[in-house]
Amino acid sequence: MEVIHPRNLEEALAAVADGMTPLAGGTDLMVEVNYGQKRPERVVALRRLADIADFSPTRIGAGVRWRRIEKEGPRALAQAARTVGSPQIRNAGTIGGNVATASPAGDGLPFLAAVDASIELTSGSGSRLLRWDEYFVGVKQTARRSDELVTAIVLADDLPERQEFAKVGVRNAMVISTVCCVVTRREDGATTVALGSVAPTPMRARRAEEMISSERSPSEATLAEFARLVSEEVAPITDHRSTEEYRRHAAGVLARRLLERCLRREAA
């Protein structure tokens, strides 16, 4: 067993390049270790690496924990942060871990899709930025090379004025999402709809976006059509947590409700 605590990013990257397993908050990796699914013998511990814990309106370091994001993050990401696990998990888990694990149910990921965030990947030979839809490839599959670390989430400097998050789970707290959704809307009506747990990766409901973006004050029928389009566009599966049919339905309901919240805030 070998564990190193890098003093700076360079040391961390060297360790990753050397094949060491990166460990941030531990809330994903240690579950697999405890269940005997992984047995990393060489670990680079990132918990105390300040170099990746920077925080600004356009850049959230990978090591920033949910606890901070729920207080200081952009509105919809903060709402998502409050649904991540439990207080204990939010104290340990990081946004970089969420992005690196790339679970279809990752609570923070629909926000990244909704605002077209980029993922900063860094290796010894430098950094590159991948847009979210280039980065997320499949279920727990990403475009990260094994010598790279997720070092930051990069956001545009003009995030949409209206942004709302919601998540369906069977319990009132500490629950994996059945469906989660972010809707954003700008003054000019430009709307994005992003969803999680309804496809192998976070996804956007582009047809629904296109339809609603041109509507300034959508009618009841338009809202219903918007929800129907979202339900149609998602690609969920049936598993032990829910059914394809329910996820389709709930995706539409959530998207519509979040849109209505954006519209109400617009009116207010």
Partner: peptide, 12 residues
Amino acid sequence: PGGSGLTTEPRH
């Protein structure tokens, strides 16, 4: 209903 997931408003 929905708890911290913010799914539900009183009108629902």
